[in-house]
Amino acid sequence: MKNLLFALLTLSAACSSPAAKSSEYVAAEATLPVRNVNQRTAQPAVRATMSYDFTRPAATYAMPSELAELSGIALAGTTHITGIEDETGNLYEYNLHTKKVDRVIPFAGSGDYEDVARVGSDWFIMRSDGKLFRYSNGKTEEFETGLSFANETEGLTYDAASKTLLVACKAEPGAGLSYGQRAIYRLQPGTFKAEAKPAYILDIESIRNASPAPEAGSQKSGKKGKKKDSGRAFSPSAVAVHPVTGHVFVLSAKQNGIVELDTNGQLLAAQPLPDDLFPQAEGMTFTASGDLYVATEAGKGSGEAMIHLFRAQAR
């Protein structure tokens, strides 16, 4: 009996001791993301649609020719949207009332600039190679985020709840993740270095499974155009945080899709966008009430980039 009791105690200790884990398991555990759409035992139900009808914009703004390559937008008060394009280092202040660019502000030399965010009176601009620019009071500073061109940093937004910037990567997710995932990193205040672990992780297979099938669930605005499978290879081009719910919205240009995550990073909705309205969806920004502006580059058949406004609707 003593031998049996001793054996049982030994087995119990071996099962509960951290030392019993293999080195491979420990190494894998150390690189696990902090948030993943597949981590919950009971996930919230994924909705077919969001609280926006992306086939019916409340307003549409045609951009001037210098913004044909419009790649990112951010609100500048209630009357202006500031945009950037991915060739020159300029900020374009677009007047929503006159529908004209009021001012062009150079902040840096030519480069592949992908998104812009406003924090107080400062403007932050993300370049595709992971370099962050801050324009304030006529001066520009540059910061190395630790992300690189391999990550293809395309989305940038300010998260008011944590008072930090979020960066969405279009390509290599880093942090030991598979290429079937996409990462959104939080930048540390002050240094603007990306945290080692992503703040949010997008699982492409989960998005694909949640997206309506093109033949059954595709949406059209009423104009001629075909639909793509938005979840086939979801590649973030913009990110924004809803000011009321705190939910994270992520746009994908190549597949013309948009997803919504809750504050824990769980996938809530995945939805395609109509091709005729969005030749290449590249930027988005929320109003204080939750209305959503979405920007698209000029398509092959159109010389104008567009910004569409969508009103929040009750679910």
Rank of each mutant, 00 (worst) to 15 (best):
E24D: 13
A27S: 14
V34R: 08
N36K: 11
N38F: 15
Q39W: 12
Y52S: 00
D53L: 06
D53E: 06
T55H: 04
E66W: 06
G72M: 03
E85T: 03
D86M: 04
T98L: 15
D102S: 15
D102W: 10
D122Q: 13
M126L: 15
F133N: 01
R134V: 12
E142C: 02
S148M: 02
N151S: 01
E152M: 05
T153L: 01
E154S: 08
G155E: 02
A160S: 14
A175C: 10
A175S: 13
G180Y: 09
Q181D: 09
Q188C: 03
K193H: 14
I204C: 00
I204F: 06
I207L: 01
R208T: 06
P212C: 05
E215M: 12
S221N: 09
K223T: 15
A233P: 01
V244H: 00
S252M: 05
K254E: 13
N256D: 01
E260Q: 13
T263M: 06
N264Y: 11
L267P: 00
P272R: 03
P274Q: 07
D276S: 08
G290L: 08
D291A: 09
L292A: 00
L292G: 02
V294Y: 02
E304K: 15
M306D: 04
A312W: 03
Q313C: 00
Q313G: 05
